[in-house]
């Protein structure tokens, strides 16, 4: 179980790791503890699987990538094959089965539109794919997963 200290640490470290020489010492100050205990606890939380990764969150558009959300209607018995074919693409970051007629939803990042078209055409022609909707964003208002642990 997460201790009170863990929760405070996780709440802060989701957004606030600084680009300074001793980032964990700065965190420790805010938490009124030592640098060593912050590091030790982070190792533990990482090992236990509470933390997936530590690092920067990049803005894909500003790095030159083009993103989209794709919804598929896939015949039930073909779902596993279609899902794993989609997973094999490098730029697919999220792929979820969802309730409803459109039962598979994935996000795709591509270096350019031509590459995106090429990938989507290949997926559209997979066995079991009834319908593919490409739903590119017209406006991005927010991209920030942040959990408040209490």
């Amino acid at each position: 179980m997460l201790t009170e200290f863990d929760k405070r640490l996780l709440n802060i470290i989701q957004t606030d790791l600084s680009f300074e020489k001793r980032p964990f010492a700065l965190l420790a100050e805010k938490l009124e503890t030592t640098e060593a205990s912050v590091i030790e606890r982070l190792k533990f939380l990482k090992d236990q699987g509470f933390i997936r990764r530590i690092g920067p969150f990049f803005d894909s558009t500003k790095l030159g990538y083009i993103g989209t959300l794709v919804a598929l209607e896939v015949k039930e018995d073909c779902l596993p094959q279609v899902a794993s074919a989609i997973n094999s693409y490098y730029g697919v970051t999220h792929n979820y089965e969802r309730e409803g007629t459109l039962n598979l939803w994935f996000t795709l990042l591509s270096p350019n539109l031509m590459k995106q078209d090429e990938i989507l055409e290949t997926i559209r022609s997979l066995d079991g794919v009834v319908r593919l909707l490409n739903l590119p964003a017209t406006k991005k208002f927010k991209v920030s997963v942040q959990f408040s642990l209490t």
């Binding site: 957004t15 606030d16 982070l42 933390i51 990049f58 991209v143």
Partner: peptide, 26 residues
């Protein structure tokens, strides 16, 4: 460090920190 700060200023880096596994944290 100066390049990393530059990326944050230009928005290439949105934030810096940990990604949690949401199922594990409830």
């Amino acid at each position: 460090l100066s390049r990393l700060k530059g990326y944050r200023q230009s928005g290439k880096i949105r934030k810096m920190g940990a990604v949690l596994r949401h199922r594990e944290v409830g």
